[in-house]
Amino acid sequence: MELIFKWEWLPQLGRGLVLTVELTAACISIGAAFGLLLAVARLYGRNVVYWLASAYVQFFRGTPLLVQLFMVHFGLAGWGIRLSPLLSGIIAMGLNTAAYQAEYFRGAIQAVKRGQALAALSLGMTRWQTIRYVILPQALRLVLPAWSNELVYMLKYTSIVYLIGLPDLMGIGRTIASRNFRFFEIYAVVALIYLTLVLLITFALRYVESRIRVPGLGTAR
């Protein structure tokens, strides 16, 4: 039972890591922007808009990400649209996380007390000003714990995109492992790298949260 790990494998894994981080950053940003829109649609939209947004959220939260990924990558290919694995990954994961983030944003916005908006309006603020200066600053603070969770989740789920050929951290790990028959060593190291990333993100976000914290605005801690 000897363990072998060659140092030359590390830079290769490093290249995969870069792709993993890129994919995570891209899909979480798209998800945030689109998710906020969906949340607004679910909160304030009229019948059709509300219904469409709700159907979207139900679908993307109720079906596996893996299936969504293949639908985007191979489904669109069937219609003549060929996407790179990275792009398919960004789109599929972006659409997926948008549905989850929509619900987190909606919950956070609803958690801001109604009187806050009334007070803002009573000063003569427009609806937009009320949202921008009173509702959003509070809602964003309230959503941070759930959002951090979602970021970590997305980072971990990027590991499935290797199945459509993306040479991310997981994909490169698989390649090296199967070429050298060193499965335990490689996957253990890969696991440690993901773990480290997760810890880094968690602590970074905890720091952010402590900086923007306001006494009296219900944060989970």
Partner: peptide, 12 residues
Amino acid sequence: FRGVPEMVLLML
């Protein structure tokens, strides 16, 4: 188990 992706766990 919360920090390691499911895929990596499966492989491991």
